[in-house]
Amino acid sequence: MPTDLQLKIMNAGHRVLLTLTGGRIGNSIFGMPSLELTTTGRKSGEPRRVMLTAPIVDGDTIVVVASRGGDPTHPAWFLNLRDNPDVEVSLQRGPARPMTAHVATAEERAKLWPRVVTAYKGYGDYQTRTDREIPLVLLSPRT
């Protein structure tokens, strides 16, 4: 499992790659669109940005996976949005849009999980590495 420092380095590298290539490299990873998610730090109250992939984009709804590579703990961004669901999302370097996050219900997850694993088999592998159920988060335009 990656350490916090490794995750921060990967995120920074992803942003640099997007910038240096004008988005030609890094806008899509393993066939999934990339996005920058901005949450509010649950302890600091400061904006926190993380690069993620979206295995499902249905119209205005984007699904992200709180896998952390199968780590036994939830990623910090997930804990942040669970406490404050008002987020901003920039999909494939597009303009940041205000969105609301909600953790998929058991019923939603049951429908979405097979689609997530079809989009990227690695998510299924991550689930086998951990006892926690990997959450799916739905991001929808804020109304």
Rank of each mutant, 00 (worst) to 15 (best):
G70V: 11
D71S: 06
S34K: 03
R142G: 02
D58N: 11
R132Q: 08
I9M: 02
G31V: 05
P98E: 09
L138A: 11
P55V: 07
M99C: 04
D125W: 05
G69S: 05
R97H: 11
D60C: 00
G41E: 12
V87G: 04
R15T: 10
L52H: 07
P114Y: 00
R15A: 12
K111T: 15
D71T: 01
P72I: 05
E46V: 07
W113P: 02
V57M: 07
E88Y: 00
R109S: 09
E88F: 04
V65C: 10
S28I: 05
S34G: 08
T143V: 14
L52Q: 02
E88G: 00
A106Y: 00
G59D: 02
S44N: 12
P141K: 09
D58E: 08
H102W: 03
N84Q: 15
G13D: 10
S34Q: 13
K8A: 15
Q127R: 08
K8S: 12
A106C: 03
R93K: 12
S44C: 08
G70Q: 13
G70H: 09
Q6T: 14
L79S: 12
A104T: 01
R93V: 05
N80K: 06
V137A: 06
R42P: 03
A12H: 13
A101D: 01
T130A: 05
T40H: 02
A106W: 00
L37P: 01
D58Q: 06
V117M: 06
V16M: 14
I25D: 10
D60H: 00
D60E: 06
P33S: 05
L138E: 11
V16S: 09
R93Q: 08
D71H: 10
G23D: 05
T128E: 01
A110S: 10
P98G: 03
L18G: 12
I134K: 05
T130F: 04
I25V: 15
R93T: 09
A110G: 12
K43Q: 15
T128I: 01
V117I: 03
P135W: 07
S44K: 10
N80D: 14
E36R: 13
I134H: 02
A119V: 01
R24N: 02
R42L: 03
G22D: 08
W113G: 07
A54C: 12
R93C: 07
G45P: 09
V103M: 07
